[in-house]
Design a protein around this nucleic acid. Structure first.
Length: 482
RNA sequence: GGCCCGUUGGUCAAGUGGUCUAAGACACCGGCCUUUCACGCCGGUAACAGGGGUUCGAAUCCCCUACGGGUCACCA
């Protein structure tokens, strides 16, 4: 069997979108599952909107997710270059060929003329498309127009009365009538090829076997197929995956909140969590497993388990998955990834002493089951770093109880006497207080928690008191003593 | 508007004519664990868009309607 070669071909017009990441992921999984190659190609023929920064963002985002490419703009490969603006010559010969065979022709219509044509068609209630005005210009007419300084575009001559069949691996056969497609531009007046043409040539010359991309490209596919046919080239396999929708069921966009991979990274999502989540959007494994490593996904992935219907981006589930990965990752890694949030918020300095590193590690150990994303550590930070804490209404209620001053005084004394504060020591102290004052656990633990943290909920007291440290604990307890 | 795609609980989804009085997960609710919360464990509520066919039998096949989405550029 022919070796599988797939590609992810983003245009560098913005940061990598969550939808793009999923397309890349599906391509990657498909390739790796079948022992094929995953190629990254940059489609930068839109000179206006393309930027190096966006390209870098896309590469960084993919790498962060753990999606590695076998060939691409930065790593090279046997079909280099992998940036369309660097492959301009490669398109020219194909244009010439189609020009010679009559599949293409020059069109001198100006934008104004086209706009007018569009308006007229719309006014008549017909579908706006190019009517083929320049289809049969004689060489003389062409020369005259060129002499006027008109820069022509090259259009593809769409054959009339044809049914174009898109054989799609996820959607089955999809039929299009060629009459519904106007002669489309293949080379722009600045002599840069358009998307619909460049993709075909690149996929063809790079030996791409399967084109897995978002559904929004489905209606472009008949145009591309027409080009393949004009060239007498074999068709690759197509697979159009459904879109990712926002909460309101329209295509995911900025107004739905975070849409780029990097935003999720900044919010403290782990790459493996995002990958796991994205894989489950529009694809379902055979069993009932929900948590998958990249390796497992590669094992399990198959295009025929990809859904046809669009999927709503479910933030709740992402949170759950991320929380799961946070709970299951080593504290050292959590600390490493999470400490920058503490630094950015000013709780810790840019460069850490060994003691501060240790402190951060202890904080993350305690918070591990509380966080659903790393940035939330900042919400808990005052608990560990503030000299005084505000009491919640519930905490105030608890602190009004009669036994509180005695408990606080005794705790203060015992903490003071302890040579060192460790979880074991604090645990013992708290227990001894219940005994000495003959109080129920609740009557001791709850007020202590309220006084020390300002909350009635939170991690084990014996874990957090040593982290908070004697000084701060005393300053928080002070107001509640007898 | 034309063309195209889609429609199983709030969400992700399994399901490819009988084993569906429809799986699992998230969310939600309840219980257990625990000094509290979180975690974890156990349990519960909740769905085949509507209407016609085909068939002994339909979530599964066909048609229509409704709704949602995509696309109609010298953007990709």
């Amino acid at each position: 069997m022919e070796k599988v070669r797939v590609r992810f071909a983003p245009s560098p017009t913005g940061p990598l979108h969550i939808g793009g990441a999923r397309s890349a992921l599906f391509n990657y999984l498909f390739a790796k599952k079948l022992g094929g190659q995953f190629i990254l190609r940059i489609e930068d023929t839109d000179l206006e909107r393309s930027s190096c920064a966006s390209e870098k963002n896309i590469l960084d985002s993919l790498r962060w997710l753990g999606i590695e490419w076998d060939e691409g703009p930065d790593v090279g490969g046997p079909y280099a270059p992998y940036r369309q603006t660097e492959r301009l010559e490669s398109y020219q010969s194909y244009v010439n060929r189609m020009m010679k065979t009559g599949h293409c022709y020059y069109c001198f219509c100006s934008e104004e003329e086209l706009e007018q044509e569009r308006q007229e068609l719309m006014a008549k209630g017909e579908l706006p498309r190019y009517l083929g005005k320049c289809r049969s210009l004689t060489p003389e007419e062409q020369a005259r127009l060129r002499a006027l300084g008109r820069q022509p575009v090259v259009r593809f001559r769409v054959p009339p009365g044809q049914t174009v069949v898109v054989d799609d691996l996820v959607r089955g056969q999809v039929l299009f009538e060629s009459d519904g497609i106007g002669d489309f531009v293949v080379v722009k007046s600045d002599s840069i090829p358009t998307y619909n043409f460049a993709v075909v040539i690149d996929d063809l010359t790079m030996g791409i076997t399967h084109i897995i991309r978002a559904e929004e490209h489905l209606s472009n596919t008949p145009r591309q197929i027409l080009v393949y046919q004009a060239l007498g080239a074999p068709l690759p396999q197509f697979a159009h995956i459904s879109l990712i929708l926002g909460k309101d069921r329209s295509k995911m966009s900025k107004r739905h909140g975070a849409t780029s991979v990097m935003q999720y990274r900044e919010m403290g999502y782990l790459p493996e969590a995002l990958v796991n989540f994205l894989a489950l959007l529009g694809w379902a494994p055979e069993g009932e497993q929900e948590i998958f490593s990249l390796e497992e996904l590669i094992q399990e992935f198959s295009l025929d388990r990809v859904a046809k219907n669009p999927a709503v981006f479910d933030m709740d589930k992402l949170h759950w998955i991320n929380g799961h990965y946070i709970r299951h990752t080593p504290v050292e890694r959590l600390t490493q990834l999470g400490t920058p949030y503490l630094q950015k918020a000013g709780y810790l300095p840019q460069t850490l002493t060994t003691a501060e590193e240790d402190l951060a590690c202890r904080i993350f150990r305690v918070l591990q089951s509380y966080l659903t994303c790393l940035s939330q550590v900042v919400d808990y930070a005052p608990l560990f770093f503030a000299d005084t804490v505000d009491q919640s209404p519930e905490a105030q209620e608890v602190l009004a109880e009669a036994q509180v001053p005695a408990v606080v005084d005794l705790l203060t004394r015992k903490l003071n006497e302890a040579p060192e504060l460790t979880p074991e020591v604090v645990k013992g102290i708290l227990k001894s207080i219940t005994k000495e004052l003959k109080l129920g656990g609740r009557q001791v633990f709850l007020p202590v928690r309220a006084a020390v943290t300002g909350q009635v909920h939170g991690p084990e007291l014996h874990d957090i008191i040593p982290i908070i440290g004697r000084e701060r604990v005393f300053s928080r307890l002070a107001r509640f003593g007898g």
